[in-house]
Design a protein around this nucleic acid. Structure first.
Length: 596
RNA sequence: GAUCCUGUAGCUCAGCUGGAUAGAGCGUCCGCCUCCUAAGCGGAAGGUCAGCAGUUCGAAUCUGCUCAGGAUCACCA
């Protein structure tokens, strides 16, 4: 609504400028933000017209102001040198803002610029041989949040996951389990299934190392019939899997279930959900048939060695293999099949792949291949590429045991949050200490992961990164909890105020105007975040409004304001701020807490 | 070697459709609980916006080059 006013001003000023300059062709007027509140709410710089007018920008600003006189949209002109600024009467507009926020409630901030669009979002895509780590968490937070943003922009969103449950890496943990498992199960060892299976993946790596060592100290051992080479054995198992060997398939199904049960629990804990799961074990065959189709169409070539390849010279790349010489499929093959299956299942207008930036090449090639196969929708595929999560000493490496486990991290943060609650003697004020602690941990984590622009790599320092003070998720939650507390206290004596209506004109403080402006602008930020697939826009917005409110709350009494009218006005303002915060929280995965 | 991404305070990050004195948090130092939750609020110190050139009335923001870091260029996923 403020935005509408800004645009009215822009148009009115442009019209006046055209008259003033005697030209229909003028540079579009820029809409800016004055650096200080006393300089107004919106700024229009006059620099670009100085040449045409042969006058200093400050002169143009004052000329335009006097020409305009009273014939202008709502607001007051403030001349600030070369800028023509406008101050809105926010207290007067507050009634409209309140009405809108109250009417829309949890939907306040939503828009419709993606209305009617069917958008599929792929994210997470774990392997079934190990638990989730911090890198996955960035992916999950991003995918979940972007999906919420797109919904808020009016799109119909379908969240899909692709389970990477086949391939030689999966066979490795199976093999290790078969050899060293002694029949133990996640139930018998009381382990989460994904951690249990992950342990055998690590066990395989260890075995591999042992075998390497044995080979280097005694090269002849290879010919010893009692020596088993881990990698050869894993390849054999993959072949057995592809041939449908009953025992291998049974073990595969069992271990997959263990992992997936564990992952499902992690997703639940993290507030992540999907509308549909795809499995590579289903889609890789479809990929093969697509490659065959491409071969018939002549877009792929069969090489002399029997492999099928595509020549990527038209996009300045080399050749890419799509089927191995033995006819087995690759990662790329599978992704071709998955994309086709998805569009058949749910004909999307757009499909967003939330995948790390290291796979840019892969998606460039994939999109090109699908286009060559004649799928028009290939133009609507988008790779939302995000940067790595690094440790202060560099990349996370599973071999060096520096991978930050997702479940462990969430657990540690929950324990820290729990300590804080106990230390602050807040146990009796929160309704469920464990749930609250976990929600704080989640808020901290999601905010931490989403406050950084997706394209950027980020550094995670396990000791320092996730704090509960300062610019953090818990700070936002805390602000929300304090507002909630004020509102609870007010509701106890609300009947005394039933005769007092809302009069926004008493909200004259800078902080109050700032809050009104922030509340009114929220839909703009939602739109911007959705357009750019960038949740950090919302994170920054929320921090800003929380900071303004905290300052305001510190300096001014709400429940003990000077007049009953002022109390009611401040309460309504607090309600609006809280509503906007709640709505923003939902977009970036921060649980809202009534108390903490 | 080629392509892509990144470079802003000691650290982690905003700001980038060009516009007013480049902002936060953490850390350091100093204040504030008789007051709606101190997970808070205020203040101080801290900057060659990697460098050079260009475009422009105006550049952290756009363009080019250079330097530094990272990623990718598999019949791995």
């Amino acid at each position: 609504m403020l935005n509408k006013l800004k645009i009215e001003w822009k148009e009115a000023l442009e019209k006046e400028l055209r008259d003033y300059l005697g030209s229909e062709e003028i540079a579009p007027l820029a809409i800016g933000q004055p650096p200080k509140p006393e300089l107004g709410d919106v700024a229009f710089p006059m620099f670009p017209y100085s040449k045409a007018a042969h006058k200093a920008p400050a002169m143009i600003a004052s000329d335009i102001a006097s020409r305009l006189g009273d014939r202008h949209p709502a607001g007051d002109i403030i001349l600030a040198g070369p800028y023509l600024n406008v101050r809105f009467d926010l207290p007067a507009l507050s009634g409209m803002i309140l009405e809108k926020v109250e009417k829309d409630g949890d939907d306040y901030g939503k828009g419709d610029f993606l209305k009617g669009r069917k958008i599929m979002v792929e994210f997470s895509c774990p392997n079934t041989n190990k638990p989730l780590h911090l890198g996955h968490m960035r992916n999950d937070s991003l995918g979940q949040s972007v999906s919420e943003l797109l919904k808020a922009a009016g799109a119909e969103v379908r969240k899909v996951n692709l389970i990477n449950n086949r391939g030689v890496h999966i066979c490795k943990s199976m093999l290790a389990y078969k050899l060293f498992g002694n029949g133990e199960t996640p139930e018998s060892t009381h382990e989460k299934g994904d951690h249990f299976v992950g342990r055998y993946y690590v066990r395989f790596a260890q075995w591999e190392k042992e075998a390497e060592k044995a080979k280097s100290s005694n090269p002849d051992i290879v010919s010893d019939p009692s020596f088993i080479d881990p990698d050869t054995e894993a390849q054999k198992m993959l072949k057995l899997w592809e041939d449908g060997d009953k025992d291998v398939r049974e073990l595969w199904a069992l271990m997959n279930k263990w992992t997936l049960d564990g992952l499902a629990e992690s997703y639940r804990n993290m507030g992540i959900s999907f509308d549909k799961y795809y499995y590579e074990s289903d889609t890789y065959k479809l990929g093969r048939s697509q490659v065959m189709k491409g071969l018939e169409m002549g877009v792929f070539q069969k090489e002399e060695d029997g492999s099928v390849q595509i020549d990527l010279a038209p996009i300045n790349l080399d050749k890419k293999v799509l089927l191995r010489r033995d006819g087995t499929t690759l990662y790329m093959t599978q992704d071709i099949g998955t994309a086709v299956a998805r569009h058949e299942d749910w004909p999307f207008d757009s499909l967003i792949y939330v995948v790390a930036s290291e796979q840019k090449y892969h998606f460039r090639v994939l999109f090109y291949i699908l286009k060559m196969l004649g799928y028009e929708w290939a133009d609507e595929l988008y790779h939302l590429s995000y940067g790595m999560v690094n440790l202060p000493e560099g990349k996370m490496k599973s071999r060096e045991g520096t991978v930050v486990d997702a479940d462990d991290l969430l657990e540690e943060l929950s324990a820290l949050a729990r300590n804080e609650i106990v230390e602050k003697n807040r146990e009796n004020d929160v309704d469920d200490i464990d749930r609250t602690a976990r929600d704080i941990a989640l808020g901290a984590l999601n905010y931490y992961l989403l406050q950084v622009q997706p394209t950027k790599d980020m550094v995670f320092n396990p000791k320092e990164s996730i704090a509960f003070n300062g610019n953090t998720g818990p700070y936002l939650q805390y602000t929300g909890a304090r507002i909630s507390s004020v509102l609870r206290k007010f509701s106890e004596s609300e009947s005394q105020y039933s005769d007092v209506g809302f009069n926004g004109r008493v909200l004259v403080l800078d902080d109050e105007k700032e809050l009104l402006k922030d509340v009114a602008d929220f839909p703009l930020y939602v739109r911007k975040a959705a357009e750019n697939y960038d949740p950090s826009v919302i994170a920054a917005y929320l921090y800003d409004i929380a900071k303004t409110f905290s300052h305001y709350y510190h300096d001014n009494q709400i429940l003990k304001a000077e007049t009953r009218e002022l109390i009611v006005a401040r309460i309504r303002l607090s309600e609006m701020v809280l509503q906007v915060m709640k709505n923003g929280f939902r977009l970036i995965g921060i649980p809202f807490l009534e108390a903490m």
